[in-house]
């Protein structure tokens, strides 16, 4: 294995970790995930690929900045769950489709992407397939695959047409409407990382040895 490939592999591990971790943060808050160790890990991994985002993550590791889990739960519910109007709907179709509807064409296209990669929605996943957590996890899954042009193309496509296409609008809403520091920062970290990753994949397609 050449140096280049080693670097790519290491980078990929970090990307996989970040996509997975970020995905988990869009579920109801769990205390294991908002403890100092988990957040330090987030900061350390971010530092590898997106120093700007790492700054926010580092701030979160200071306990005072996280806040009580109860507050986070309330904020999470208001932002993403309801029961009233969602302050920041976590579904791609809301941003990508003209009439802000859930389960539109873009949702079906996301599903097609999942299917092609060999995935189906888990029977216990009770949310729409274009939920931010699902899309982040899908990227985690893809970055886990062997590195070849096809896989990178697949990732690039998904970022361009899905996650990357609505992350700006979505995180902007969160940033604006969240009441806790935690979710504001999480929105920034998500945006900065996804954007940085899009740039990275472009470059990777050029660097990747042809096999």
């Amino acid at each position: 294995m050449g140096q280049l490939e080693c670097n790519i592999r290491a980078q990929n591990e970090t990307r996989a970790n970040l996509y997975r971790l970020l995905s988990l943060y869009y579920y109801e808050p769990e205390k294991e995930l908002i403890d100092k160790r988990a957040l330090s890990f987030l900061a350390a991994e971010m530092a590898q690929v997106c120093p700007e985002g790492a700054k926010y993550a580092a701030e979160l590791t200071e306990e005072a900045n996280i806040g009580e889990i109860e507050d986070l739960r309330i904020d999470y519910a208001k932002l993403f769950v309801g029961p009233f109007d969602l302050l920041a709907p976590p579904y791609g179709s809301v941003y990508l489709e003209k009439r802000r509807r859930v389960m539109g064409e873009s949702t079906l296209d996301a599903l097609r992407c999942y299917q092609e990669a060999g995935l189906t929605m888990d029977r216990y996943f009770m949310e729409a397939p274009d939920h931010i957590a699902a899309e982040l996890e899908f990227m985690y899954y893809l970055s886990f695959q062997d590195l070849d042009n096809e896989s990178v193309e697949r990732q690039k496509y998904f970022l361009e047409h899905h996650l990357g296409a609505w992350v700006e609008d979505f995180t902007a809403l969160v940033e604006e409407r969240a009441e806790t520091n935690f979710y504001r920062h999480l929105a920034r970290i998500t945006r900065l990382f996804v954007n940085a990753d899009q740039v990275y994949l472009e470059k990777l397609l050029i660097d990747l040895p042809v096999r």
Binding site: E13, A16, N17, R20, E32, L33, R37, S40, T120, D122
Partner: peptide, 27 residues
């Protein structure tokens, strides 16, 4: 999530591991 989440995650990249999925199931 049991134990340290961070440790669990750090091991993810280890060769031979399979992705641990939440929202998805492999077809």
């Amino acid at each position: 999530l049991k134990g340290s989440a961070a440790v669990g995650l750090a091991a993810l990249g280890v060769k031979g591991r399979r992705p641990v999925l939440q929202a998805f199931a492999e077809t």
